[in-house]
Design a protein around this nucleic acid. Structure first.
Length: 457
RNA sequence: GGCUAGGUGGCAGAGUGGUUAUGCAGCGGCCUGCAAAGCCGUGUACCUCGGUUCGACUCCGGGCCUAGCCUCCA
């Protein structure tokens, strides 16, 4: 089956046919590193990491670039507030980003370009835009001239008149047109800056992605991805800059945008102050639970975050790991076609998870002779989704660490209870079990003896 | 105001012009000293009003409601 992807540019689901099937290129807008990532920031990281995996199964070479924006006024502000150098901030939070995303099972992209390493390319690109009369200099700024790019608004489906009518920002006096946006802006002595033909300054917000994508992937790329809120103005402006600088008809051939993570149905965003920080969530939940939740809704739909969905994801993973714990280790690559088909259909992760659960049901229904094979398939299918790769024992044990337990004390109580059971003193036995239960410990009397688990919350 | 997505069972969440989504919770059963876990079985659904159709939750139109973008934002 051909991979199908929903293209924001055409608002339809299309067959994915790369320009060069020996070299597929994708670019995702990565983090601006000035504080910890929230779970809404994690969504595109997880989704487009999954896309990279899905593409890599079909194409010999996929180059995935995800940038780090390390020059930005929010970074400057954070550095000033904390009284530290800018690179202290960017280094700290880039590292935290890698750690947190790693905990969610997000792999590293092929290339992770940083804006500050590409100032030369940015300046060259801006100069090209000026030379081609698509940009102009005004009061130390360089601005993109939207008027001279007729296709402006194509991605976000707006026309210029609407943009002007709807503009909620004061238009800077040096702009020729209200929709013009900054490519380069002057820096004061205390701000980070680089020498340029237009004086010491720093890049505007949008130009870095255009410059880095061209530098590493080429002037025309297959896929460009990011959050829905980047459609306008960020991606619209990237298209304008890139196409005008390179004289191309197309910048990215497929545009993909993920929906938002919401809290009580409201968009999670830093400005609304309702963010849930991944770093904090990881103190309470396994990264795999967070990942399962992020995969449980289709990427283009909103995903409402709550305690309840976390509990549901954990319960489901408990069951799946429980099934796997009965079976021998197997590292075969026998994936369930239903899982792959679902993912290749515009990353339909809910259907893929349904298929994964269907496989689990088949496994529990099967004769014990067939179970190892089905278990191997379950694990291999989970691998594509970035799930079920832990040793089941470790999955269950990690919860013991989350609550304060003294294992030998619990074992002593279990021994005491089993003696009581042997004596048919069930009142005592039940009292011990209830006491442990109140501490969040569940006992399981099996043929091999009594084991215990920390109960799911 | 302009533009864009949505409204599915107790909750989460896919999908389809006529046939079981799936998970979590609930209920019944097996198992158990009793439980838990596990396994088996099981119910309630497609915002509203019209239209198209042999037949619509699924297509078309109106309405109501929700969220998002138009400003930094994933």
């Amino acid at each position: 089956m051909t991979i199908h992807l929903y293209n924001t540019l055409t608002r339809t689901k299309e067959a994915f046919i790369p320009l060069d099937d020996q070299r597929v290129t994708m670019y995702a807008c990565g983090p601006t590193v000035y504080n910890y990532a929230h779970i809404g920031n994690a969504r595109p990281a997880v989704i487009f990491d999954l896309l990279y995996r899905v593409l890599s199964r079909r194409f010999p070479k996929v180059i995935y670039a995800r940038n780090i924006t390390d020059v930005d006024d929010k970074i400057n502000k954070a550095a000033a507030e904390q009284g530290v150098a800018i690179d202290v901030i960017t280094r700290r939070f880039a590292e935290a980003y890698h750690q947190d995303m790693g905990a969610l099972g997000v792999g590293r992209p092929t290339i992770e370009p940083r804006a500050t390493d590409h100032i030369d390319q940015i300046i060259t690109m801006i100069q090209a835009l000026i030379d081609k009369h698509h940009a102009y200099e005004a009061e130390g700024h360089v601005l993109f001239d939207v008027e001279r790019f007729p296709d402006y608004g194509q991605l976000s489906r707006r026309n210029k008149r609407e943009l002007i009518a709807g503009a909620r920002v004061d238009v800077a006096p040096y702009k020729k047109g209200p929709g013009d946006f900054v490519l380069w802006k002057p820096s004061t002595a205390d701000q980070p800056g680089w020498d340029s033909p237009w004086g010491r300054g720093r890049p505007g917000w949008h130009i870095e992605c255009s410059a880095m994508s061209a530098a590493h992937l080429g002037e025309v790329i297959d896929i460009h991805a990011g959050g829905q809120d980047l459609v306008f103005p960020h991606h619209e402006n990237e298209i304008a800059q890139s196409r005008c600088a390179h004289g191309t008809e197309v910048f990215a051939r497929y545009w993909m945008h993920n929906g938002f993570v919401t809290v009580e149905k409201r968009k999670m965003s830093k400005s609304q102050g309702n963010t849930l920080i991944v770093h904090e969530l990881l103190k309470q939940w396994p990264g795999e639970v967070l990942r399962y939740v992020l995969l449980s809704a289709h990427y283009r739909q909103p995903l409402d975050w709550s305690q309840k969905v976390l509990e549901q994801a954990q319960a489901t993973l408990d069951r799946l790991y429980g099934l796997l714990s009965e079976l021998p280790e197997d590292t075969s690559d026998d994936t369930d076609p239903a899982v792959i088909d679902a993912l290749e259909d515009d990353l339909n992760t809910p259907t893929a998870l349904a298929a994964l659960n269907g496989l689990a049901r088949k496994l529990s229904e099967a004769d014990s002779a067939d179970q190892p094979k089905l278990g191997a398939r379950l694990k291999a299918s989970g691998r594509v989704l970035g799930l079920l790769q832990q040793d089941p024992a470790i999955w269950f044990e990690q919860r013991r660490k989350a609550i304060d337990v003294n294992e030998s004390e619990i074992q002593a109580l279990i021994d005491q209870r089993n003696q009581a059971r042997k004596d048919r003193d069930f009142a005592t036995a039940d009292r011990i079990r209830d006491e442990l239960g109140e501490r969040g410990i569940e006992l399981r009397d099996g043929p091999e003896g009594t084991t215990w688990e920390v109960a799911p919350r």
